[in-house]
Design a binder for these strands. Structure first.
Length: 581
DNA sequence: GCTACGAGCGCC
DNA sequence: AAAGGGCGCTCGTAGC
C-alpha cells in the first residue's frame, strides 16, 4: 500500500536545513516536528495532526511516498529516536521529487503540480511559519490552515505518484533510493586535517587581504573598488578578472608586478571558496566524524546527478590548494579502505559506439586506449609500438581531438580545449586545420550530428524526444526555430540547440546510464559506494579483503551493459586510504 | 532585507 | 554555416 506523507517542522533564519544540514537541524533543541499529514486514496486514509497522535503501526511494511523523501525519512527516523515511531517499524520510501525530475518536470512540488495538474499551489502558509512554533500557529488562529496546507502537500504527492510512477522505471527508482541511502551514509572526515586546513586558509586570506588597498573601505572582491584604485593609480582597469581571460593575462603582464591587487583578489577568492567548503563540512559533521552530503538524483536534464545543499561533492579541487588538500580529508571509516575506480574516456567511447564506428570498437577491443585507437583509426598511425612512447606529440594531439572535437567545437574553442585538456599550444590556423581534418576523417560522427539535428528540426512546434540506448528518453520541450537556429525548453529555460550539442547530451546521458547500471551492480554485489562523480565511484570496503574487492569492483566497472553490447569499457582502479584523483 | 543575476572558479 | 556540454557555490551588485 502507498501512503503519501509530509512533515512540518519548526524553522527560522538560523535553525534551518540550509544552515545546519538535515542531521543537526532535526537534532536542534528548537526544532520540533509538530505536524504530519498522511494520505492514501487506495487505503481510504487521511490524517493531519501531531505525530504523537498517529497510530504508526498501521503503516508497517507499507510504502511512504514523499516529495523530497530524504527529508521526510529523516523526520521519521528522528521520531523513532524520540520514541514516537515504534522502534521495530519497517517501511520503504519513494521520492516524488526524484520521480518528477526524471520525467523532466520541475523538481519542486509547486512546479510539478502546476505542470501535471495545472494547479498553482501556494507556499505562503509555510513561509508564514518562519520563526513560529505550533503553539504560535494555534494562538494566531492559523493552525487550521496549516493543517490543510500540510495535508494538501501529501495529497498532491500521492496523486503525482499515482499518475506518474508507472512511467518511472524500476531501475531508476532503485537509483533514487540508492542516492538517498548513500548520501545519508555519508563520508568520514579526518577532523585534524580539516582543522589544520581551516587554519592555513585563514592565514592565506589574511595575507591576501593585506595586499588589497581598499580592504577597509569596500568588499575585498569588489570590481568597483578595483576600478577606482586603478583610476587613482592612473592605470587602466582590467576588463575581466578571470584567470583564463587573455585581457586579464595581458593586464597582469603589464601591471601585475607593480600592482598585485588582481593576483591578491584571485588568491583571496580561491582560498575563501575552499575555506567556506571546509566550514560547511566542519559545521555539519556528525558525532562519528561522518558528513552526510547532498546529492540530487537527476539534477541535470541529461540525468546526471548534481551537487546539492551547500557542499558539492562533484567539484572538489583535484589537488592541494594553498597547501590544503580537501580530498585527503575524506577517509574510509576505521578498518576500511577506499577502492576508487573511474571509467576511461567513457563519453568518447560512447560517441564512437553511437556513430557506429566498428573499426574503433575493434581497436578498443584489442586493448588500445581511446586516444591510441583514434590515432590508429583516423590519423594514420600504424607502428606496432604504443603511441604514447613512440610519438608523444601525436598522442597529445589525438587526445585533444578525441576530447575536444566530438561535439562540434570550432577552431576558436579547440585552441582553448587543446590547451586545458591536452596541454597543447596551437594557433587558430593550426586549430582550423585540425578541425577540418578531424571532421573529414570522422564522417560517422558528423553524420550523427546531422542525424540528430534533422530529427530535432522535424520536431519544431512540439517536443523532441531523444531515445537513449538504455531505453530511457531525453526530453526537449517546445522546439522552436529562430534566425539563430533551433532551440527548445530544457529545465524550464529555452536553450539553443544544434547537432553537436545533442550528440554531447546523448553521450553524457548514456554515460550516466552506464554509471547507473554499475551502481546497481555494485549494490547487488554488496558494496558500499560512498560517492560517485559522473564516471567515478568511491567504494568503502573492509581492509581485510581489499585486494579481492578491488579486482571484483574493477570487473563490475568494466562490464558492458547489455544495451551497449559491443562497446569495450575500461577503468582505472586503485586502493587508497583517502579520496584522491 | 530579500531576490535575481552575472562573474569567477571548482569539477567531470 | 557555425555552435563543446553539464553542474553548484560564493561574492558583489542592482533592483524592489
Amino acid at each position: 500500500m502507498i501512503y503519501a506523507i509530509d512533515f512540518e517542522c519548526y524553522y527560522d533564519k538560523k535553525v534551518s536545513i540550509t544552515n545546519l544540514g538535515i542531521h543537526h537541524y532535526l537534532h536542534h533543541p528548537d526544532c520540533s516536528i509538530y505536524l504530519v499529514s498522511v494520505y492514501s486514496a487506495e487505503a481510504g486514509f487521511s490524517y493531519v495532526g501531531k505525530p504523537e497522535n498517529l497510530d504508526w503501526y498501521q503503516f508497517y511494511g507499507h510504502t511512504f511516498v514523499a516529495h523530497n523523501a530524504r527529508f521526510d525519512r529523516a523526520c521519521f527516523e528522528r521520531l523513532r529516536e524520540l520514541g514516537i515511531v515504534p522502534a521495530d517499524m519497517q517501511v520503504s520510501w519513494e521520492c516524488t521529487a526524484d520521480m518528477v525530475s526524471a520525467l523532466s518536470y520541475g523538481r519542486s512540488l509547486k512546479d510539478a503540480v502546476e505542470s501535471v495538474f495545472g494547479v498553482i499551489v501556494s507556499k505562503d502558509t509555510r513561509a508564514d511559519m518562519c520563526g513560529k512554533t505550533w503553539e504560535d500557529a494555534v494562538r494566531l488562529g492559523i493552525a487550521q490552515r496549516l493543517g490543510e496546507y500540510c495535508l494538501k502537500d501529501s495529497w498532491y504527492a500521492y496523486h503525482l505518484w499515482n499518475k506518474l510512477s508507472p512511467l518511472w522505471s524500476e531501475k531508476e527508482r532503485c537509483l533514487s533510493a540508492h542516492t538517498r541511502d548513500m548520501a545519508d551514509y555519508g563520508i568520514c572526515i579526518d577532523r585534524k586535517l580539516l582543522d589544520e586546513g581551516l587554519e592555513k586558509l585563514t592565514e592565506v586570506m589574511l595575507d591576501a587581504a593585506d595586499l588589497i588597498p581598499w580592504k577597509d573601505e569596500a568588499p575585498l572582491l569588489s570590481p568597483k573598488a578595483l576600478r577606482n584604485a586603478c583610476a587613482q593609480a592612473d592605470i587602466p582597469a582590467p576588463s575581466s578578472l578571470a584567470e583564463d581571460s587573455p585581457e586579464c593575462a595581458e593586464w597582469e603582464e603589464k601591471y601585475g608586478n607593480q600592482f598585485s591587487w588582481v593576483a591578491a583578489m584571485r588568491d583571496y577568492r580561491k582560498a575563501n571558496t575552499l575555506y567556506k567548503k571546509l566550514t560547511t563540512l566542519r559545521n555539519q559533521l556528525r558525532a562519528d566524524s561522518t558528513f552526510a552530503y547532498g546529492l540530487k538524483y537527476f539534477g541535470a536534464h541529461t540525468g546526471r546527478w548534481s551537487g546539492d545543499a551547500g557542499f558539492n561533492i562533484q567539484n572538489m579541487p583535484r589537488s592541494s590548494m594553498f597547501g590544503v588538500d580537501l580530498r585527503k580529508m575524506i577517509i574510509p571509516r576505521p578498518g576500511y579502505k577506499y577502492i576508487i575506480s573511474d571509467l576511461a574516456q567513457i563519453e568518447n567511447r560512447i560517441i564512437a559506439w553511437l556513430s557506429g564506428d566498428n573499426a574503433m570498437m575493434d581497436q578498443l577491443a584489442l586493448g588500445y586506449s581511446m586516444y591510441e585507437a583514434h590515432a590508429r583509426a583516423t590519423m594514420g598511425y600504424t607502428a606496432p609500438e604504443p603511441l604514447k612512447q613512440k610519438n608523444p606529440d601525436l598522442y597529445r594531439l589525438a587526445k585533444a581531438r578525441v576530447l575536444g572535437l566530438g561535439y562540434g567545437a570550432g577552431a576558436a574553442v579547440f585552441v582553448r580545449i587543446a590547451k586545458t585538456l591536452a596541454g597543447l599550444d596551437i594557433t587558430p590556423q593550426q586549430a582550423q586545420r585540425v578541425v577540418s581534418e578531424f571532421r573529414a576523417a570522422n564522417r560517422l560522427i558528423t553524420a550523427l550530428w546531422s542525424k540528430l539535428e534533422m530529427a530535432l528540426s522535424a520536431s519544431v512546434g512540439k517536443d523532441f524526444i531523444m531515445p537513449l540506448p538504455s531505453g530511457r528518453k531525453l526530453y526537449y520541450h517546445n522546439v522552436g526555430r529562430t534566425p539563430k537556429g533551433l532551440s527548445a525548453i530544457v529545465q524550464g529555460k529555452r536553450i539553443n540547440l544544434f547537432g553537436g550539442k545533442l550528440a554531447e547530451n546523448l553521450a553524457s546521458a548514456t554515460a550516466r546510464d552506464v554509471l547507473g547500471e554499475i551502481l546497481l551492480n555494485l549494490e547487488a554485489a554488496g558494496y558500499q559506494v560512498v560517492m560517485h562523480i559522473h564516471d567515478e565511484v568511491v567504494v568503502e570496503v573492509p581492509a581485510a579483503n581489499v585486494d579481492n574487492a578491488a579486482l571484483d569492483i574493477h570487473r563490475i566497472m568494466t562490464t558492458t551493459p547489455a544495451w551497449l553490447e559491443g562497446l569495450p569499457l575500461a577503468a582505472e582502479t586503485f586502493i587508497s586510504d583517502h579520496y584522491t584523483k
